[in-house]
């Protein structure tokens, strides 16, 4: 029992890092432009398909496709921003919800029509095997995914705290009107935040595919996980997102150990409601 718990906790910590990375894109977009993209999970799902197809046709490992999918997804983010998000920032919340839920349904149905419900997994991946640490077996794929996640988060944190553009993004996030009065083109900042958020999804998707399959419904889980983490983290910056991801990963590990793996989404959702009850501004939020 103890060994199982230890094994699940290690898995939970590794998955928690990946959850945090997926949520980071959403957190960045929400932080800068106060908009919740309900299609976030579907963006992850489409990116996972992209990883699958690129890996298949170019015959390269799925993990390596991150170098291609991230820039493609950055541009994808800019396009979605221009076509949809630019129209709805700063308007009624209802219009924002309707527009992004519409996008969610659209992408999910397109995926169903194009690829059917059959799950797809990578044919070719170099991140195989596992390392054994005492009683715990750590799959190389998950370990790499976790390390890349933490690395990407550190890189974003560095960008936000050490560059002129990052500072302008944080200023916009704090007060967009005051930022615009200092000559910061806030619409450009919104587009940048949206593109960066999507590029992060692209990186995450490539490494998720090294240990998971994708189907048109995959977006639901990733969306839910991301919303929960963003609510947990509040507007607490990159570290808040990472901590929230780790908490979620470990809660899932405990749930799997002591109850039923099939209930893990239900337990996560309950956690989400609990946090809304006790700390509606998030565990790590500053405002």
């Amino acid at each position: 029992m103890l060994e199982l718990l230890l094994q699940n906790l290690v898995n939970g910590i590794l998955m928690g890092c990946v959850y945090a990375l997926v949520a980071l894109g959403l957190a960045l977009q929400f932080g800068v432009m106060d908009i919740i993209n309900f299609a976030h999970g579907e963006f992850v799902m489409i990116a996972m398909y992209l990883v699958f197809w690129i890996s298949l046709y170019l015959a390269i490992p799925g993990s390596l496709t991150s170098l291609i999918v991230a820039p493609i997804y950055f541009v994808f983010g800019l396009v979605v921003y221009k076509l949809v998000i630019d129209r709805i920032v700063g308007t009624y919340p209802l219009a924002q919800i309707a527009a992004t839920i519409g996008l969610m349904v659209l992408l999910r149905n397109l995926a169903l029509a194009a690829w059917r419900a059959q799950p797809r997994g990578l044919q070719y991946e170099v991140l195989r095997g596992s390392v054994t640490l005492g009683p715990v077996v750590v799959p190389i794929s998950r370990l790499t995914a976790a390390l890349v996640s933490v690395g990407t988060m550190l890189a974003l944190h560095w960008f936000l705290t050490h560059t002129r553009l990052g500072l302008a993004l944080r200023a916009t996030s704090d007060d967009m009107q005051a930022a615009s009065l200092l000559g910061i083109n806030v619409r450009r900042m919104f587009a940048l935040a949206f593109g960066l958020g999507c590029a992060i999804i692209g990186i995450a998707a490539a490494f998720i595919m090294t240990f998971q399959q994708v189907n048109p419904e995959s977006g639901l889980t990733w969306g839910l996980i991301s919303w929960i983490i963003v609510v947990m983290a509040g507007l607490g910056g990159v570290s808040g997102v990472l901590l929230s991801g780790l908490i979620l990963g470990m809660v899932e590990a405990l749930e799997i150990t002591f109850w039923d793996p099939r209930a893990s989404l239900a337990v996560m959702y309950s956690l989400f409601i609990l946090i809304l009850w006790v700390k509606p501004r998030g565990l790590f939020g500053r405002r």
Binding site: L167, R170, A171, S173, D174, D175, Q177, A178, A179, L181, R286, R287
Partner: peptide
Amino acid sequence: PEGRRIFPNL
């Protein structure tokens, strides 16, 4: 601006 509007988290 009225009410200063400094960036609180910077």
